[in-house]
Write a protein that binds this DNA or RNA. Structure first.
Lengths: 366, 366
DNA sequence: ATGAAAGCGCTAACAT
DNA sequence: ATGTTAGCGCTTTCAT
């Protein structure tokens, strides 16, 4: 630490009181309720505190007594590195941090390694509530959070009966995107989605796995896509869906490669995130496919880079999502009847979507 | 919260013990030392706990008793939004979070609004130590941190006698950059730097203000630049230095505009961060100046975008910086004799630096 | 393998 | 304006 002084943890509120010949209440008041004692006495207390090296009331003891930790916990099981590399996740984090700052409470990042199911960290966190961000419904950390007697707000997923939730209407949002593609004439589409469960499956996804996905956001989006394309006369069972465990641009590219190698007739690759879409675009380029002339690619989230390159995507207000979750948790809201806050989304048509090649030829010649 | 059950905070370790007709020790052991009691009894304890809705030992009470909070505090006074928008800061945060995760301790972001000097949040934080990231030497939050009887590690700035610190050798790093520019022939340079104090001064900087800068990193970099250019025969007093309070690309552009409007003869703009340099590049384009033919621009940090566009800059390992700080804080290291960890830096020559126009003409004709 | 005793350091009624 | 009384809920020697 540096100054040797700070090491010897000695002076307590009680010892200070003794030294001064006053009661502990008075010393406590000197710190917490300056108006409860004469300025003169307060000055003496603080002065003596300095002399004795008393650092002020111990925060943990105070928390025990007041039953208030002054912090909210944040649980995000996803490997931290991905969280800090995904602009959408960073936006959520920022919004949440802002809400906490506004309220003057700390934001406690719970160490939840995805590998080892070390739930102890959840038990150890001295917080007044939790925000859970985008975890699978069978996450043991989540179970531990819900077992604690504090309010909890979930962002995005999972959707749990009776628990506050903040997120977009994924189904409605992606339905608009699907209708856009259907309108353009796409019937042979492929999907590239994020992980559907805690088990790694970097491969095509069966209908059964789609239906039973533990990540509700992905499940809802796939379901909505299925509904929309079925309505357009497409047999969803024939639509290839590729899953990627790691959420990176590179994995997006690999996923697209897998998809396009096996199904070269696909005219549009629908990605459930912009990050994956960025990878799909890279793969398209690698294969010499022009976008959107030869291939349509779409994303989801509306991150800055997507906007910059003109990706057709669904934009969602990530910062607001984090902020709304923080506010909801910290609000006096009786968390008795659970709230669900639905955020607006916005279909952003970019330059990566166009009619499929065959249609184009049909209209304009080869 | 949802389940009404979780609201009634009732069952405690003591009440559980009473219900079971065993001692509190036994219940405690059931949770913390499974090997200290018969499996059968333990099963009964846990089972009864579930029945009574006892959520397990209260983390705050446990912390008070064990004198361990299981978390480290992070103080970064800079407006949160800037922290989450600067890739360099995000890298530090990620590294620190990783170190915490490895150690199984939480990372507690202390709410420290730059405006109001609300130091209370520092007092309230139940943490075992603090990491302070890049604050001015007169920051009241920092003072509050140092007053607490826990170890502290500072990243980058300020440099305080007797306190552990992790950071690059800013002076050495930027000296190499300066020598590169001098070698190219630049003698008429201008500097664009980040804020030098807590007061806003979006303007040219006097020598006095440079010298007295409260942000040590900026001070050190300016000082090193002064030394290097003086050695090359430049009178540092004639070198324009523009300061920017907000650390954004836009402000970088404004700063460059201010600089180039008043000193159009400048052949190189040295920016003390990549973000500012990105802005300077935008401004150069706006003015129709070709880079590097008409103007040289350099940065500092080595963020991904800088690398992508080929900015000449100094790269520093930001993730490692954060991780090293976390490890140092959490290590058994007797923080009695303070440590200073210096990280390596790396001059990355890009395509934004070249000999000044006049020299080029001298050599190759106009 | 289990229990009894002794606080950890503080705040909040409720007096005076 | 200041003091008295009572814990907050838990862990940890030290016994048994």
């Amino acid at each position: 630490m540096g100054r040797p002084l700070r090491m010897r943890r000695q002076a307590t509120l009680a010892s200070l009181a003794a030294e001064l010949g006053v009661s502990r209440t008075t010393v406590s008041n000197a710190y917490n309720r300056p108006d409860q004692l004469s300025p003169e006495l307060r000055r003496r207390v603080l002065e003596t505190a300095r002399r004795l090296g008393y650092p002020g009331p111990d925060p943990v003891a105070r928390s025990l007594r007041t039953r208030k930790a002054g912090a909210v916990g944040l649980l995000l099981t996803e490997n931290l590195s991905y969280a800090f590399r995904d602009p959408a996740a960073i936006g959520v984090l920022e919004g949440l941090a802002l809400a906490c700052e506004d309220a003057g409470v700390g934001l406690h990042l719970v160490p939840a390694s995805p590998g080892r199911d070390d739930v102890a960290a959840v038990h150890r966190a001295g917080v007044d509530g939790f925000v859970v961000y985008s975890v699978p419904d069978d996450d043991p950390h989540l179970a531990a959070v819900l077992a604690r007697p504090v309010p909890t707000v979930i962002i995005d997923q999972p959707q749990i009966e009776g628990i506050d939730r903040v997120g977009p209407d994924d189904a409605a949002a992606i339905t608009k995107l699907a209708e856009h593609l259907v309108g353009l004439g796409h019937r042979q589409v492929g999907v590239l989605c994020m992980r559907l469960g805690r088990d790694r499956n970097d491969d095509f996804v069966s209908l059964e796995r789609q239906r039973a996905a533990h990540f509700h956001v992905q499940r809802n989006r796939l379901e909505a896509l299925a509904t929309a394309f079925t309505k357009a006369g497409v047999d969803w069972a024939t639509v290839p869906v590729v899953e990627r465990f790691d959420h990176t641009v590179d994995e997006g590219a690999f996923g697209a490669r897998q998809l396009l190698s096996t199904y070269p007739q696909v005219t549009a690759v629908i990605c459930t995130s912009d990050i994956l879409a960025l990878g799909a675009l890279a793969e398209a380029e690698r294969r010499g496919l022009r976008v959107p002339a030869d291939l349509t690619v779409t994303g989801f989230d509306g991150i800055a880079e997507a906007e910059r390159i003109g990706l057709t995507t669904v934009h969602q207000p990530v910062l607001e999502k984090g902020r709304a979750a923080g506010k909801l948790l910290l609000s006096a809201a009786d968390h008795i009847n659970p709230q669900v806050i639905t955020l607006p989304t916005d279909l952003r048509l970019g330059t990566t979507s166009a009619p499929p090649r065959t249609m184009e030829e049909h209209w304009f010649g080869p």
